[in-house]
Computed example of a mutant assay.
Amino acid sequence: MKIRASDGSRLRRINLAATLRALRGEPAVGLTELAARAELSRPTVEGLVEDLLGLGWVSEVPPESGRMGRPRRLFRFRAEAGHVLGIDVGSSGARAVVCDLNGEVRGRSTVRAEASFGREKRLAGMRSAAHEALSYAGVPAAHVMAVCVGTTGVVTATGTVRLCVSLPDWTGLDLAAEAGRDFDAPVLVENDCNLAALAERWVGVAQHADDVVFVLSGTRTGAGMLIRGELHRGGRGAAGEIGALPLVGWHRAPSHLAAFPGLPPSAPAGEVAGLVFAAARSGDPAARWAVEQFAHDLAEGIAALVLSVDPDLVVLGGGVSRSADVLMEPLRRHLDPLCLEPPALAISGLGDQAVVTGAVRHALNHVDARLYDVDAPLPASSRPGP
Rank of each mutant, 00 (worst) to 15 (best):
A124G: 11
A124T: 00
A124Y: 07
A124K: 11
A124S: 15
A124R: 10
A124H: 09
G125R: 04
G125H: 07
M126D: 06
M126H: 02
M126N: 01
R127L: 06
R127F: 11
R127G: 10
R127M: 01
S128A: 10
S128E: 15
S128H: 10
S128M: 14
A129W: 02
A129C: 08
A129Y: 04
A129Q: 08
A130C: 09
A130Y: 00
H131C: 04
H131E: 15
H131W: 07
H131I: 06
E132R: 15
E132K: 11
E132C: 03
A133C: 11
A133M: 05
A133N: 01
A133H: 00
A133Q: 02
L134Y: 07
L134D: 04
L134M: 10
L134E: 04
L134S: 07
S135K: 14
S135C: 05
S135G: 03
S135D: 13
S135A: 13
S135Y: 05
S135N: 14
Y136C: 14
A137W: 09
A137S: 12
G138T: 00
V139L: 01
V139A: 02
P140G: 09
P140F: 07
P140E: 05
P140T: 05
P140V: 03
A141L: 10
A141N: 14
A141V: 14
A142K: 06
A142M: 10
A142I: 00
H143R: 13
H143T: 04
V144N: 00
V144H: 04
V144C: 04
V144M: 13
V144K: 09
M145V: 13
M145L: 10
M145T: 14
M145D: 13
A146I: 05
A146L: 03
V147P: 05
C148V: 08
C148Y: 08
C148H: 03
V149T: 06
V149S: 08
V149I: 15
V149A: 08
G150E: 09
G150P: 01
G150L: 02
T151P: 02
T151H: 11
T152S: 12
T152A: 12
T152V: 07
G153N: 13
G153S: 07
G153M: 11
V154H: 12
V154T: 12
V154L: 15
V155F: 00
V155I: 04
V155L: 05
T156S: 15
T156L: 10
T156F: 08
A157Y: 08
A157G: 11
A157R: 14
A157M: 02
T158G: 15
T158Y: 13
G159E: 11
G159V: 02
T160I: 14
T160L: 04
T160V: 15
V161F: 02
V161P: 06
V161C: 09
R162S: 14
R162Q: 13
L163V: 09
L163N: 12
